[in-house]
Simulated assay, not measured.
Amino acid sequence: MSYCGFEAFKVLAKNYLDVVESELFDEIKRLLEVEEIKMTPADVGENLLPKSEGEEGETCLRRLIEALKEEKEEAKRRVEEEVKQKKEEEEEGEES
């Protein structure tokens, strides 16, 4: 499955929220273009779904922005952990 790009996000925003433009789109576009952020269209759609009756589109867009930021931080942690593990393995190899 491919990851969600900005054009796919716009289709989801229209379908889920009936929103075709928002001042929040620029930040969402910027986050979706970050290479480390890997969010599927299904994950984006889940974040766009209103969680309660009457919840506004802007609230859902803000929730998506927070989820994208969390994914970015999680990706950063994964990379740091991989670097740490690789370093430990190299040190163990040198001791042998």
Rank of each mutant, 00 (worst) to 15 (best):
G45I: 02
L32F: 05
E27R: 14
I28T: 03
I28S: 05
L49S: 11
G45D: 05
E55Y: 07
K69F: 02
R77D: 10
P41W: 10
E36D: 15
E74Y: 08
V19N: 02
K10A: 09
V20D: 09
K29F: 02
V83A: 08
A42C: 00
V11E: 14
E74P: 00
G93Y: 13
M39V: 15
E71Q: 11
E82H: 04
K51C: 06
E71W: 03
T59Y: 02
T40H: 04
G57E: 07
T59D: 13
K29T: 06
V79G: 02
E36N: 10
L68P: 07
G57Q: 01
E92Q: 12
Q85Y: 05
V20P: 01
R77H: 09
L68F: 10
L49D: 11
G45K: 10
K69I: 08
Q85N: 06
K14I: 03
E91L: 14
C4T: 11
L68W: 06
L64R: 05
A8N: 11
V44G: 09
Y3D: 14
L12D: 13
G54M: 01
L32Q: 02
K38V: 02
L61K: 02
E82T: 07
Q85M: 10
K72D: 07
K69T: 09
K86T: 14
K87Y: 06
V34W: 02
V83T: 06
K69C: 03
R63M: 02
A75R: 01
I28R: 00
K87R: 15
E80R: 11
E82C: 03
E55V: 05
T40C: 07
S52N: 06
I65H: 01
E71V: 08
A13M: 03
A42R: 10
T59G: 03
L61Y: 04
K29Y: 12
L49M: 14
